[in-house]
Design a protein around this nucleic acid. Structure first.
Lengths: 122, 122
DNA sequence: TGTTTGCTACGAAATTATTCGTAGGTGGTA
DNA sequence: TACCACCTACGAATAATTTCGTAGCAAACA
């Protein structure tokens, strides 16, 4: 399961909003950029065929839902990304990410706790 | 500067090896998968036109060099990636990366130091 | 009932990325 | 000189992704 960029954009909407019709997704997408309705429809149909989405056809307009979780998708994408962009070095990626993005104190704490956990493992 | 996957693969070789001829790059690439010589040539020509590479034409075979640094490229790609895959949450990405990849104690220490630095800033 | 509105399905164009074949040139070497 | 090996340039085929137009159907409504 390696969604394309457009597919990921749609998944993001569904992860945030839960089950949606094509129109609802399309409305969210058009907040950022111009996307035709049938473009979104076609993409969601393809994603349905691929198994990335499920749908309920009861109503006149189908209701779609993500069939892959946000976490597992992120894990897959991250795996690829660390490999291609950082030659597999997760720590280099982490340093870059922390260095150039703003992180709240609470988040920093959480990361620290995770570090503790990892170091305590035998 | 947003290199494609194939372009990134070539940049990786040049970052690791320094200046190379097309043949040298191609030989490195074919270690992993089948790539025709002219395929690599064409890609590197395109990258040269885009300004991603420089080249010296003195010798019979041109010698290419990366014209973007590994760090700035990683930063650009990371920026995009955090945005599209993690909705901008760098800390979520960091947690995932630390959780699912093996990191040495030395690297963990380095990350910890970076956390300290960030927290000390006003 | 006839018209408008909104939906799905789907073919196909448009765009972007990747791969490769071929032409033409240059240097080494028998 | 004639041949072979290796190089560049470049057009064009292929593949993957995204976009859109159109047909057809069904509910809502004047």
């Amino acid at each position: 399961m390696k969604p394309t960029d457009s597919e990921l954009e749609i998944l993001q909407v569904l992860w945030q909003e839960g089950p949606c019709t094509v129109r609802q997704v399309n409305e969210r997408l058009t907040e950022n950029r111009d996307v035709g309705y049938t473009t979104t429809l076609k993409l969601m149909q393809i994603m349905y065929e691929k198994g990335l989405l499920t749908r309920v056809e009861d109503a006149r307009s189908h209701v779609y839902e993500a069939n892959v979780s946000e976490e597992e998708t992120q894990a897959t994408l991250l795996e690829r990304f660390v490999g291609t962009a950082f030659r597999g070095s997760a720590s280099k990626l982490v340093m870059q990410a922390l260095g150039s993005h703003k992180t709240t104190p609470a988040e920093l704490d959480e990361i620290r706790k995770l570090l503790d956990q990892i170091e305590q493992q035998p």
